[in-house]
Design a binder for these strands. Structure first.
Ligand SMILES: Nc1ncnc2c1ncn2[C@@H]1O[C@H](COP(=O)(O)OP(=O)(O)O)[C@@H](O)[C@H]1O
Length: 392
DNA sequence: GATCCACCGGAACCGTGGGATT
DNA sequence: AATCCCACGGTTCCGGTGGATC
């Protein structure tokens, strides 16, 4: 029996640890939400008046990542839509994730499309998009409930008009009414908004607290029962995952992610159970995967800048300055027949790498010898090279 | 104190790729 | 076809700036 055959035979002989693996994936929508009764009720209460045809208030849901904002919102929205449909109410709901869309403009495009308006993904004037959205809201009449998830990802304090304009839309619509529910991962988001927006949007607010260890444990236990065969995941493993996630801002997404990857590792190894050791291995595997996919999604010039930083860092064991990195980066470009981006763009690239946490760039004043950034790589040259190879 | 290095980073602008209107 | 609108990535321009050295 050859190598490959052995793997297949093994897979046939041992049954998978998973019953329904998809239950642990991030986009799974559970039909049972634990420890969020207050939040569920509060959000349902906000939407409820729309069933009677009354105007509903703009709401704001905020809390740290993985505290259940999205599940709660989508769950209530789903239930709301089905009641509204049964009652024959002309209420429409739409959900857009702003981080996924990427920019304010694309959020508008997505909102239009959710309402069935066919708009091109680029080319239209912003004002025209507003007009079309406006017409779509007004055309069929009735309320439109729009949930904008992760707004903080596209919101630029001072220049963002999205929210303000959307809240003002009602002043000119005749039959349709638009209600906004804004979800933000940043608890300080509120302070970033200017007064007009704040008063328009903060008619209602719901704060999501981090999950405690016990709450995370319950969520994990419930999901584990759906996802794995009986007896596969011991209590101890669930407690371990819960403890790690509780320490990291009470993040349920993190807890579920750990459990899923631990399960996959155990499954692949042919282990009979998912143990805490598998969870430890999962932490490392997730870390590696996070780095790998962050690197892979970088534009080519960002990869080259990062490679320059990493090489220089590792070669001399000290952090290079902007000027040095730029020179090395320019050389890498020329070796490859690429035209280097200019220095200003280079500095923007470095600023972005810093933002992504792939390098740290601290401003340093060396008096006579100028002011520059010392750039430190948080990834190894090998990791960047791997990402560069898979290019093209 | 004044100087001046080696950059920093805001802002205005440009080119490309898209679409609407007439 | 001409002329308008736009976003996005990149470029051009340029006024800062902390602190060792003169
Ligand atoms: N109370 C809960 N019960 C069950 N699953 C939950 C609960 N809270 C969060 N989750 C799960 O945790 C993950 C992250 O939750 P999510 O709502 O996306 O967080 P947020 O939007 O606050 O960042 C999702 O996969 C979700 O299914």
């Amino acid at each position: 029996m050859d190598l490959v055959e052995a793997v297949f035979q093994q897979a046939l002989a041992t049954r998978s640890l998973f019953k329904r693996r998809e239950v642990l994936l991030p986009d799974y929508e559970p039909d049972c939400i634990l420890h969020r009764d207050e939040e569920l009720r509060a959000f349902a209460q906000i939407l409820a008046p729309a069933l009677r045809g009354d105007r509903i208030l703009n709401a704001m849901l905020f809390g740290l990542p993985g505290t259940g904002k999205t599940v709660v919102a989508r769950y209530v929205l789903r239930r709301f839509a089905s009641v509204a449909r049964a009652q024959d109410r002309s209420v429409r709901v739409l959900y857009v994730n702003c981080r996924v869309e990427g920019s304010e403009y694309k959020v508008l495009v997505a909102m239009c499309r959710e309402l069935g308006v066919d708009v091109p993904s680029t080319g239209l004037a912003k004002a025209e998009l507003y007009a079309r959205l406006f017409r779509a809201v007004d055309a069929r009449g009735g309320a439109v409930i729009a949930v904008l998830d992760e707004v903080d990802a596209v919101y630029r304090p001072g220049e963002s008009q999205l929210l303000y304009l959307l809240t003002r839309m009602n002043e000119s619509t005749r039959r349709g009414k638009l209600s906004l529910t804004i979800i933000s991962n940043s608890v300080t988001f509120k302070e970033l908004m200017d007064a007009r927006e704040r008063s328009a949007l903060f008619e209602e607010e719901i704060l999501f607290h981090p999950y405690t260890f016990e709450q995370l444990y319950d969520i994990l236990k419930h999901r584990a029962e759906l996802a794995f065969h009986e007896g596969v995941v011991p209590e101890e493993t669930l407690r371990y995952c819960a403890a790690i996630a509780a320490k990291e801002h009470g993040d349920a997404r993190r807890a579920l992610h750990l459990l899923r990857v631990a399960g996959e590792l155990a499954d692949r190894a042919g282990a009979p159970q998912v143990t805490p050791q598998h969870v430890d291995a999962a932490i490392a595997a997730i870390d590696r995967q996070v780095v790998r996919s962050a690197l892979a999604s970088l534009p080519i010039h960002a990869k080259l800048v990062l490679l320059a930083v990493a090489r220089l860092c590792y070669q001399r064991g000290s952090d290079p300055t902007s000027g040095e990195v730029f020179a090395y980066y320019a050389r890498l470009c020329r070796e490859r027949g690429l035209r280097p981006r200019n220095e200003r763009t280079f500095r923007s690239i470095v600023a972005n790498l810093d933002l992504y946490g792939l390098v740290t760039a601290r401003l340093e004043s060396r008096g006579r010898y100028g002011r520059t950034r010392r750039i430190h790589a948080l990834v190894t040259p090998e990791e960047v090279e791997a990402a560069l190879c898979s290019e093209r």
